[in-house]
């Protein structure tokens, strides 16, 4: 665990709180892509199936392999899962009438199918858990695409939405730094799957980062994209 990794996780956690706070405070999820949020629930569901492994060790009192890092990861995984499901739940129940569904036109199969095929071909081990983990890594990299498309469609995002986008994009960028740091300091075989996907994910946010900083510098309330 290094400073970049912990900062990344906290930024990721912050992103959920920003989004939930925004939706609760404004009683609206306008400008937020339901499809992107739905993809995040799928990402975490596929990636964190090893929670059952930890649960199995706990209920059999097999604590020998449970380290501080396991407990930290387990705690965060449960939080991420709970937060992402709660967001999807909010967007489909009390905030449904404010949802931008009509403009949220991205076709999910266009990312789901390639990610599934890639996960079946490029994986570290041909097991169900490993393939689902790999699928989740690929899907997370591109899951923001419906959100970006909605942002381009509407041409602007309110302040909290753009802070949310910054937090989600920044988290993976910090993970890139974490991987470089680990590569340099640990006898750690590099995980090319995560590296490449993480790079793609951060690159997808690159354009957004640029407009975010321009907006912050100019002190505008809303982020406006050039049309």
């Amino acid at each position: 665990m290094n400073i970049f990794r912990i900062s990344a996780d906290l930024l990721h956690l912050a992103s959920f709180f920003i989004l939930i706070f925004k939706m609760k405070a404004t009683k609206s999820c306008k400008g937020i892509s339901f499809k992107t949020q739905l993809m995040y629930t799928l990402v975490f569901t596929c990636r964190y199936l090893d929670l059952f492994h930890v649960l199995g060790m706990m209920i059999t009192f097999n604590f020998a392999h449970i380290t501080g890092l396991t407990l930290y990861n387990t705690f965060m995984k449960i939080l991420f899962l709970a937060a992402s499901y709660y967001i999807v739940y909010l967007m489909r129940t009390e905030l449904k009438s404010t949802s931008d569904d009509a403009r949220d036109t991205f076709v999910l199969w266009h990312i789901l199918a390639p990610c599934a095929v890639l996960a079946l071909i490029f994986n570290a081990q041909f097991t169900i858990l490993e393939i689902l983990w790999t699928f989740s890594i690929y899907l997370e990299a591109v899951a923001v695409m419906p959100q970006l498309m909605l942002l381009i469609e509407t041409g602007e995002a309110d302040s909290l939405s753009s802070h949310y986008m910054f937090a989600v994009g920044g988290y993976r960028a910090l993970y890139l730094v974490n991987w470089v740091y680990r590569y340099a300091t640990e006898p750690y075989y590099s995980n090319w799957i995560a590296w490449i996907a993480g790079f793609v994910q951060t690159a997808l946010f690159g354009d957004f980062f640029y407009y975010y900083f321009v907006k912050i510098m100019s002190g505008d309330a809303a982020l406006k994209l050039p049309t």
Binding site: R5, D9, L49, D50, H53, N73, Q125, L129, E130, W133
Partner: peptide, 10 residues
């Protein structure tokens, strides 16, 4: 080995 346990990141 590349078992799921080896994924020590989130």
């Amino acid at each position: 080995a590349a078992a799921a346990d080896d994924h020590d990141e989130l």
